[in-house]
């Protein structure tokens, strides 16, 4: 069932945690809420779960308005950031908890719980207490516990952020695989863009309690709507431009060749890997003379930062891969990029 959030607002005192926010999570889709700390991700997730109530707005699942449904009756699975396993119950008992709440017959509940533990590769740890398991194992059990009662929606609040890097990488693909296997509509909160890129069907970038942009990983990377999104997912050179009276866009003192644009563009973005460096002007749409300021070797690639002559305070960096001849710092160079690589960025 698809989840629909319409015009949800939430105030904490004078802090606007959510500001008239709307979005849709399609059936069976894995959606990530991505944004910096404090942007309202957790608040939104908790409002969807029913653990927090919105000041205004509406949330519907399929045809049902959830406003009158108690959180305990929503049949949502939730995995929390901190280990939330009941410390007095074994892994198996933890997974059976939701089934017992639904009055499953004991034998059936146990079989289902074992099946779930098996799914997260922990069938052999069924009798262990949470304190006897590692952080990664505990989160696996938490996932098994959340999906055991066949919830209609799975909510995960930074489930991997407390784990160390190796376990985190392992669990990313595992969570994604489980989600696809059982086809459950899922929302995961994260502040880690690589996590979102790797796992999500759809990414919702949040900023200051509002939706900044929604799209697939590719859409967001290649067509960021704003500088915020562009910088949050990868890095970007943002060029402040100004139209002159002849109708061309000026980057400092030089006109830029841009794709046919509408309206007034103030900022253009170009990804560093779309920029090349040469010692003489290249045949790209834009080729700007400048001075190489820094040249950094980063293993599998190099970063060259150039101060263009037309706008010396707007450094453009280029990410160069492969065995290229690199300039030295202080060399006069050209920075080159094609117009179709330029993205219009809103504030």
């Amino acid at each position: 069932m698809s989840l629909e959030v319409r015009g949800v607002s939430k105030l904490y005192g004078s802090v606007k945690a959510l500001d008239n926010l709307s979005l849709t999570v399609p059936d069976g889709n894995f959606t990530c809420f991505l944004g910096p700390s404090g942007c309202g991700k957790t608040t939104l997730l908790r409002i969807i779960a029913g653990l927090e109530s919105a000041d205004s707005g509406q949330i519907t699942l399929g045809m049902n308005d959830l406003s009158q449904t108690q959180p305990s009756e929503r049949n949502f699975g939730v995995v929390f950031q901190s280990y939330s396993l009941f410390p007095n119950l074994s892994a198996l008992k933890n997974v059976m908890y939701g089934l017992e709440c639904r009055a499953w017959p004991k034998a059936k509940a146990k079989a289902r719980a074992m099946e779930m533990l098996d799914l997260v590769h922990l069938a052999d740890q069924a009798d262990k207490l949470p304190s006897q398991m590692s952080g990664g194992q505990q989160q696996r059990v938490a996932i098994a516990r959340a999906i055991a009662p066949q919830p209609s929606l799975l909510l995960l609040d930074e489930p991997l952020s407390a784990l160390d890097a190796k376990v985190r990488a392992e669990l990313r693909s595992e969570v994604r695989k489980i989600q696809q296997d059982i086809g459950i509509t899922t929302i995961m909160v994260t502040h880690d863009q690589s996590e979102a890129l790797e796992m999500a069907d759809q990414i919702v970038v949040l900023r200051g309690g509002q939706v900044e942009q929604v799209g697939t990983a590719r859409e967001l990377y290649h067509h960021p709507r704003t500088e915020f999104v562009a910088n949050f997912i990868g890095t970007i050179n943002s060029l402040a431009v100004e139209p002159n009276d002849k109708g061309s866009l000026m980057f400092g003192s030089a006109p830029l060749v841009v794709p046919d644009s509408q309206g007034s563009i103030r900022k253009l973005g170009v990804r560093p890997e779309a920029v090349t460096i040469s010692s003489s002007p290249a045949k790209t749409d834009n080729s700007l003379a400048g001075i190489a300021k820094t040249v950094r070797f980063l293993g599998n690639y190099n970063v060259v930062e150039v101060a263009p002559d037309c706008a010396p305070d707007q450094i453009i960096s280029a990410e160069l891969r492969g065995d290229l001849a690199l300039p030295s710092e202080g060399d006069a160079v050209y920075v080159n990029f094609n117009s179709e690589q330029l993205r219009e960025l809103q504030a």
């Binding site: 959180p71 929390f80 119950l89 908890y97 709440c101």
Partner: peptide, 21 residues
Amino acid sequence: STFDEASTMLGGSTLRTLFKV
């Protein structure tokens, strides 16, 4: 309070949370 919330989301009533957790 995460334990309370976890129990609630699993469908547990206040009383069940109290007695089981």
